[in-house]
């Protein structure tokens, strides 16, 4: 038996990415066989196959059901929150004299409620599969994702509500809007003022109209 060194990269890959339960013994077997005269090509082929087996196992045991459940939960929560936001928005519009029987609004809410209901039904359907596979860390990750989703959507809703309120302020509610209204009045006055000025000449006389 020679003591030639096997390719370090191949062994590193095997120990890093191979199956944890037997990677060390397999690496030992490969080193032993290599020192007994196997080629580098043989060793690399064995490592490639070991990585293939590990990848296959990872795909087979991948917690796809958890990914599916998280997506369904996100869809259900998003649809539910959007439905609530739409209803609130519509009722606000109605209170300022909007159209109460808006078919677009009814359709949107109906679609959102349908999506939320379907997602909840699908979630309940995957419940037994998930409890069989879910580990405590994954359950914690799910709860954190849920909290993040609720907070993010909640913040989004409040931001939207604020934006709507400042929109209402522009109708001469806030200080800025008042200035803007004054300016508008002024520019109207200015325009009126400018009418006669136009005949007598230019911007110099605009100051006489007391408009900034």
């Amino acid at each position: 038996m020679s003591d030639r060194a096997p390719p370090a990269l191949a062994l590193w890959l095997l120990e890093r990415c191979g199956s944890a339960s037997y990677a060390e013994s397999l690496a030992g077997d490969l080193i032993e066989e290599y020192r007994q005269g196997r080629s580098r090509g043989w060793l690399w082929r064995q490592v490639a196959m070991a990585l293939g087996v590990a990848l296959q196992r990872f795909i087979r045991t991948m917690p796809w059901i958890i990914v599916l459940r998280a997506s369904l939960r996100m869809a259900a929560e998003t649809a539910a929150v959007l439905a609530i936001v739409t209803v609130v928005e519509q009722s606000r519009r109605n209170s300022v004299g909007g159209d109460a029987a808006n078919f677009g609004f009814i359709g949107t809410v109906a679609a959102l409620i349908t999506v939320a209901s379907l997602a909840i039904v699908a979630l309940m359907g995957t419940q037994s599969m998930a409890t069989r596979r879910q580990r405590p860390a994954e359950a914690l990750a799910g709860v954190l994702m849920l909290a993040f989703g609720v907070i993010a959507l909640g913040m989004g809703t409040f931001t939207r509500a604020d934006t709507t309120r400042s929109g209402a302020d522009t109708a001469c509610g806030g200080a800025d809007a008042v200035r803007s209204c004054v300016d508008t009045t002024c520019s109207r006055a200015d325009a009126t003022c400018r009418g006669p000025d136009d005949s007598s000449g230019g911007a110099a006389r605009r100051a006489d109209c007391n408009c900034r």
Partner: peptide, 29 residues
């Protein structure tokens, strides 16, 4: 492939058909 043999042995061990024991680490390996 050696990896396939180890994967099969691992499955057999999970089914209780074989048991494994670790030997001593050696310099040749």
């Amino acid at each position: 492939a050696l990896a396939s043999v180890y994967a099969a042995l691992e499955r057999l061990e999970k089914k209780g058909l074989v048991v494994s024991t670790l030997g001593e680490p050696t310099a040749e390996r």
